[in-house]
Design a protein around this nucleic acid. Structure first.
Length: 562
RNA sequence: UGGGGCGUCGUCAAGCGGUAAGACACAGGAUUUUGGUUCCUGCAUUCGGAGGUUCGAAUCCUCCCGCCCCAGCCA
């Protein structure tokens, strides 16, 4: 599926699977699942889990199901289901016909709950939410039994049926597993497994007023689907005894096994669902697919290739250590793929006009340019040249620092794929003193050739023929947060937002070949970075480009240091 | 505080009793019509700490320290 996945990674989860296989468990089957709750868009952290689950299934000749864990109607919606399906497909994974919903199991789960009651392992509790909390005890004190704990099976069955039938108010009754109110693990102190919630479900509508809790629904959904290895994140480690307990009461033979790994944390970004939702709702970004968002939809729109995300997930590994991955690694993976695959193009973001005085006014030349310097198979394109061109403002300095090798008074520079030009004079705005135009001369002998006298031209800059350049809008993105670990501390995340995460440049130019660039297509603007045609706002007469990621910039680093 | 986890380079991460892989980052240098790419080079005498076992310990034992998770009718 991916050329970068040639080396199968090894990690503690695969070691467990190897051992299970060696022990003859599950008849040699490996079945995983990715179980999102459809109450938000998936992000790069989910991508790690997706790559893990689908990757393991592929590696072991097994299967990976997509299952929506939709047991709490509040906040869940079809929009999220659809976005999740789209995003996983885009990431490059396929679950064939194995798309499931926990909500499709509601009737079976109900029957499992009835069996639990019949076995004397669950009871209907009348305590209020507050009372249940009080009865639960604390880390250091054991809990107390609910007064309802010893109801008869018959009464429990009757009450539970009436809960389902809608006879009771929301919150007036719950179904609880009867385990151990003195357990040192709070999860095991008679956990709630069903609650009454009169809220329409986006799939089952009003047919249910009771909904199973995660701990009850998840393990049984895994069992129903024949999952062998149920991979989840570390915060569920405390829940594993409950996962096993429920299955022990209800099932015999091979059972799914829960394995926990450390979730992804990314520097300078936040992956908390709560914060992501707030960023969208409060308008700090323009939507779930804002190119600054760490969502799969955002990264796709930004122009990150799916393969780069997969490669990133392979690179970071899987372990149980808390981690904070340097976002530079993600950017590295993006550059690595784009360097190989993105055709080169010319664009000027902050134009400065240059008149080449000794070049004829009515002439247009066309230069044949390679689409990729290292890969001739990517072909060539024609680039027009004329007397007036635009260069990048940054590529001229009146009083340049030491190692500057671009245009300056008295200097010469190579125009990429064209001639060597020499500075002659500049025109300044009388009021502001700003340089508004340059005059240069060109050396006709240097067309695609070094200067005849053998002198070395150090600098190469990009340019565009003013007459032929296509106006474009370019959006420069930077990290959304200014601090390395915005999730640390309970500070208001708003304060660590980067006010300069988006810079919109409206007066840019791109080469004519890009006039009709396909939305979503990517190229490298030479010397600037990788760019992607925005799939939402770009129009044929007015292309809009998103900067995917800048090129590595050793010069920028040097000059930053002074 | 009771329970459950985790501590190996700046950041990830291999290592599974035989003497510290790799990646990113960083720093030098070479090549270059992208200050890109590519290519070399450097980057943990030491594995949270202290004891112990052993010919030999990041790996085994003991104690200590630090960080994360759990007291939703969320997942």
């Amino acid at each position: 599926m991916t050329n970068s996945d040639t080396v199968s990674p090894t990690d503690f989860i695969r070691e467990i699977i190897d051992a299970d296989l060696a022990a003859g468990k599950n008849d040699g089957r490996v079945a995983t699942r990715f179980p999102p709750e459809p109450n938000g868009y998936i992000h790069i952290g989910h991508a790690k889990s997706i790559c893990l689950n689908f990757g393991i299934a592929a590696q072991y000749g097994g299967t990976c199901n997509l299952r929506f864990d939709d047991t709490d109607p509040s906040g869940e919606s079809l929009e999220y289901v659809e976005s999740i399906i789209d995003n996983i497909r885009w990431l490059g994974f396929d679950w064939e016909d194995r798309q499931f919903f926990a909500s499709d199991y509601f009737e079976r789960l109900y029957q499992f709950a009835v069996r639990l009651i019949e076995a004397g392992k669950a009871y209907v509790c009348d305590l209020s939410a507050d009372e249940i909390r009080e009865y639960r005890g604390t880390f250091t004190e054991p809990g107390k039994d609910s007064p309802c704990r010893n109801r008869s099976v018959e009464e429990n069955l009757d009450l539970f049926r009436r809960m389902r039938d809608g006879e009771f108010e929301d919150g007036s009754h719950v179904l609880r597993a009867k385990i151990d109110m003195a357990s040192p693990n709070i999860v095991m102190r008679d956990p709630v497994i069903y609650r009454i919630k009169r809220e329409p479900h986006y799939r089952t509508g009003n047919t249910w007023v009771i909904y199973p809790m995660y701990d009850f629904a998840h393990c049984l959904s895994d069992a129903i689907e024949g999952i062998t290895h149920s991979i989840c994140t570390l915060e569920f480690e405390n829940n594993r005894p409950l996962y096993d307990w429920i299955l022990d009461q209800l099932l015999e033979g091979d059972r799914p096994r829960q394995i926990e790994f450390a979730r992804l944390n990314l520097s300078y970004t936040v992956l908390s669902k709560r914060v992501l939702i707030e960023l969208v709702r409060e308008g700090y970004v323009e939507g779930w697919d804002d190119p600054r968002m760490p969502t799969v939809a955002g990264m796709k729109r930004r122009g990150y290739p799916a393969g780069a995300i997969r490669e990133f997930c392979a690179q970071i590994g899987v372990a149980k250590n808390d981690n904070l991955i340097d976002v530079a690694l993600l950017e590295h993976c993006v550059r690595e793929e784009l360097n190989e695959k993105a055709p080169r193009a010319m664009a000027v973001l902050r134009p400065l006009k240059v008149v080449i005085d000794n070049y004829p006014e009515d002439v247009t030349e066309e230069f044949e340019c390679a689409n990729h310097p290292q890969n001739p198979e990517m072909g060539t394109r024609m680039l027009p040249f004329s007397r007036e061109i635009y260069i990048e403002r940054d590529d001229f300095q009146e009083d340049p620092p030491g190692k500057y090798k671009r245009l300056a008074p008295g200097r010469e520079v190579r125009l990429r794929n064209a001639y060597v030009i020499t500075y002659e004079s500049m025109v300044k705005d009388e009021k502001t003193g700003e340089v508004v135009e340059l005059h240069c001369s060109y050396d006709p002998e240097t067309k695609n050739a070094p200067p005849a006298d053998g002198r070395k031209i150090k600098g190469v800059i990009h340019w565009l023929s003013a007459r032929h350049a296509i106006p474009a809008e370019v959006r420069l993105y930077d990290r959304l947060f200014q601090v390395p670990n915005p999730a640390a501390g309970d500070d208001d995340f708003t304060r660590s937002l980067n006010p300069e995460s988006l810079e919109t440049l409206k007066n840019c130019f791109v080469e004519p070949a890009l006039r009709d660039a396909t939305p979503g297509s990517r190229c490298q603007f030479e010397r600037l970075g990788y760019f992607c045609v925005d799939s939402r706002d770009s129009a044929p007469d007015r292309p809009v480009f998103n900067r995917v990621v800048a090129l590595r910039d050793t010069w920028g680093k040097m000059s930053d240091k002074g």
